[in-house]
């Protein structure tokens, strides 16, 4: 039996990624089981994130495991100056798996170095959030029937948006075409465009969220444009509505198009899109449960598909 941490989506290769997608599908069909019977999982949220924590804890519960943990660091000895290393070592004595979220970048990677128990990174600052990427991939896979040869349009904050960066990197195995749609201040960083070039991935870059772009897309991945990202507030006021999706913009889009968004949304997707069957962001969040069940069982070396 092997156990495996998941700190970054780049820790897993194409084969493992596809296996996690198959596992996600299995858990969608069989959400409740006892395969974690007798196992205890810690959810250590040094930084609060109710959405992610509930998703992980539901995943453990539906698999028949038990959960211990905390939902913010104020309730722990971290607030008394205990090092991360000491907290991880202490908790490692009690549990089979640690799911952790931390505001410091690299915290989860470091945690894997101080314990032999597997670590799942549930977000480390602006760095990595691999379960989000797996649920994004599963949502694409499930709605399109494949990950191969898709046109994916990313819109909004492409500069700071960690979810789009991770998704971009994970898609490298599947021959995608990307459209990067953002204002000048929030363009896709050069290192990710270089990543595309190095991996033979086609991409178009534009400030214009045009009908042509929308109508050629299989997936539109919307992200939040936050006021605090702008050095110039006037610039924010000028661009904030340029990257807003309204239902009427989808009139001539592909019938199979799906709109994704990591949530929470503010106003970048108009409420009038919600009832369009192409709107998929709420189901996408729901898929997080199955993707996390897959990641948890992989971490514990349990494979229901191997039977």
């Amino acid at each position: 039996m092997t156990s495996k941490s998941l700190v970054s989506i780049s820790d897993i290769d194409k084969e493992e990624m596809l296996h996690l997608l198959e596992l996600s599908r299995y858990f969608e069909e069989n959400p409740n089981s006892k395969i974690l019977d007798g196992r205890v999982v810690a959810t250590l949220f040094f930084e609060p994130s109710t959405r992610t924590r509930l998703s992980f804890e539901t995943a453990v519960n539906r698999l028949g495991g038990r959960v211990i943990g905390f939902s913010d660091a104020n309730s722990t000895s971290t607030s008394k100056g205990e090092t991360l290393k000491d907290t991880i070592k202490m908790v490692s004595n009690y549990v089979d798996l640690i799911v952790m979220r931390h505001h410091l970048e690299g915290a989860a990677r470091y945690a894997t170095e101080v314990t032999s128990k597997p670590i799942i990174n549930a977000g480390d600052g602006a760095n990595q959030h691999p379960s989000q990427t797996m649920l994004d991939l599963y949502s694409i896979y499930k709605t399109q029937g494949t990950l191969e040869n898709l046109t994916i349009t990313m819109v909004g904050d492409l500069k700071y948006g960690r979810t789009v960066h991770s998704l971009l990197m994970a898609m490298r195995y599947f021959n995608p075409t990307f459209n990067f749609i953002a204002c000048d201040e929030l363009q896709m960083p050069a290192e990710y465009k270089k990543f595309c070039i190095d991996n033979g991935i086609r991409f178009n870059e534009s400030t214009d969220f045009s009908a042509d772009v929308i109508n050629s897309s299989d997936i539109i991945y919307m992200t939040r444009v936050q006021r605090e990202r702008f050095t110039d507030i006037m610039e924010y006021e000028r661009v904030k509505d340029l990257y807003r999706l309204h239902n009427s913009m989808l009139d001539n889009s592909k019938p199979t198009l799906k709109i994704l968004h990591p949530l929470p949304r503010v106003n970048e997707i108009d409420q009038d899109v919600d009832d369009n069957p192409k709107a998929y962001y709420f189901q996408q969040a729901g898929n997080g449960l199955f993707a996390r069940q897959a990641i948890i069982t992989r971490a514990l070396g349990i494979d229901p598909l191997a039977k």
Binding site: T83, K85, H102, H103, L104, E105, G106, A107, R109, N127
Partner: peptide
């Protein structure tokens, strides 16, 4: 915001480019 600046631990970098030399933090990337 890197963990190495907040915990008593060694830093670690990987060389990812040679001309010019570019290094990447093992922890925060």
């Amino acid at each position: 915001k890197c963990i190495t600046n907040n915990e008593p631990m060694d830093t670690k970098f990987h060389v990812v480019g040679h001309d010019p030399v570019v290094i990447r933090c093992h922890y925060c990337n």
